[in-house]
Design a protein around this nucleic acid. Structure first.
Lengths: 252, 252
DNA sequence: AGTGTTTATCGTCAGGCAGACGCCTATGAT
DNA sequence: ATCATAGGCGTCTGCCTGACGATAAACACT
């Protein structure tokens, strides 16, 4: 039975990426500057069209690699292989979200360690890591006091949803290790939680919690003093992906 | 600047619905029988094309109303208005998921009380509530011993994801009340948890937990004996949507 | 009327976990 | 040597949960 193209309206399908990292004790997202209308010159989330023969996850991984050079690892793969965590976030399909045409965007959330420098088509001035506070301060002012235009399209909403997903998910999963290098200390992991939640945590209780949860952290045997002070044990992410009981976000 | 239709491949966008309810102490999902190829005669999740001027949530609410007569209420509205809970679940876009053409499906999850009788275009034989165990028993056998064909397309995966979402979400939210009539007893709410999780819960500890969580339940003053035994207090869902600390699913 | 069954509701107790916080340890900087 | 910094261990208290005893209020029998 042939299918009837007039039976349904055609859509463009894109993937948009919320790429989060922790830099200088702040949760930052990758933003790219738009080179063409609409919203020319404004900051937006990286993204692009899904190709005809591509799965959604493949498209998101391809865009992530194009923008950052990061390899997304398979969700089924062990957490401590290199590369970023990538998961589907939500889909946005308001008929008016793109003034040109009907676009449905499948947003994805990626978590990466600090290392990579942005590279949007090789032009560094068109991509940057910006604190999410700054990107979400609609019509507010940036770090240097200049007024900041809100993100293009509905990307502020997408970013807010991605940030909330990350904030809640590190409560009950070992996902926070995706923000860390392959080997890290308990203090570095704690600073990740503090940056993502924007709170201060008790170092002693945090240490007790993460080292006392079986399968969460695996000691590598090494130590480091890269944070100053007494040498700290190095750990890798363990096999446990679910934290039970969860790490509780302090009340506000 | 005119847009170039050759710059991206056209997609069909659909919504598929995982509609869950609790019947006879079992978690059930709405299934419809396919009237045309592919997968003709097989059971599938209800769904349909998103229209040209429709938001994704609108399309899902429209399909839900067409299939069940249920009104989806606004997520921002209070939980105790009538109608079903509806939220976006995930999006499925494998290039081969529909053999006819490239279809991206935005799956939604709906939770409804037991009351409604299925009606798929008025033909009851083409729609039914089936225990999720049965629908997910790929190639297994149904309640009456007959072999059951697996759901069409990737709908088994979608259903499994929806069930898992419901199972985890009632842990930390008041969503389980969406399975209940507007007024319900603590015991009825407990039987919802037991059906969704497929476990037995201690009635006394459950009672202590839900009545002790501020804002979760609001007594209406009435009582009922519709479950037999001693009369039970009736409650409505309170304003609290987040349960903190969460209701813990017993270990297996 | 009495007895059993069912469901609801209140109470008790022990164990586990989290928050608050004291204290010692091991480095680098001055 | 002394200080500053960060890591790591222990203690105490209060809250929550799981296990389970006991009572209460309805209905169905006999």
């Amino acid at each position: 039975m042939p299918y009837d193209p007039s039976a349904f309206p055609p859509f463009a399908v894109t993937v948009d990426l919320v790429v989060l990292t922790v830099r200088r004790h702040a949760l930052c997202a990758l933003a790219v500057r738009r080179g063409e209308p609409p919203f020319q010159g404004r900051w937006a989330l990286p993204g692009g069209f899904v190709r005809a023969d591509e799965d959604l996850a493949q498209a998101a991984a391809r865009e992530l690699a194009e923008e950052t050079g990061l390899q997304a690892h398979d969700p089924a793969a062990p957490v401590h292989d290199h590369g970023a965590h990538l998961e589907q976030l939500a889909t946005y399909g308001d008929p008016k979200r793109d003034p040109r045409m009907r676009v449905v965007s499948v947003a994805h959330l990626a978590l990466a360690p600090d290392l990579p420098a942005p590279r949007a088509g090789g032009d560094a001035s068109n991509a940057r890591w910006a604190p999410v506070e700054e990107l979400l301060a609609q019509g507010g002012y940036g770090r240097d006091g200049e007024p900041v235009a809100p993100l293009a399209f509905d990307h502020a909403q997408i970013l807010a949803d991605g940030v909330e997903r990350a904030r809640s998910k590190i409560e009950y999963s070992s996902l926070a290790t995706a923000f860390c290098p392959p080997e890290f200390t308990v203090g570095e992991l704690r600073r990740v939680y503090e940056a993502v939640w924007n709170v201060a945590l008790d170092p002693r209780n945090f240490h007790r919690k993460v080292t006392g949860t079986p399968g969460f952290l695996v000691p590598t045997g090494g130590t480091t003093t890269r944070q100053g002070g007494r040498p700290a044990q190095l750990f890798r992410a363990g096999g446990a992906t679910l934290l039970n009981p969860p790490m509780l976000r302090p009340e506000v």
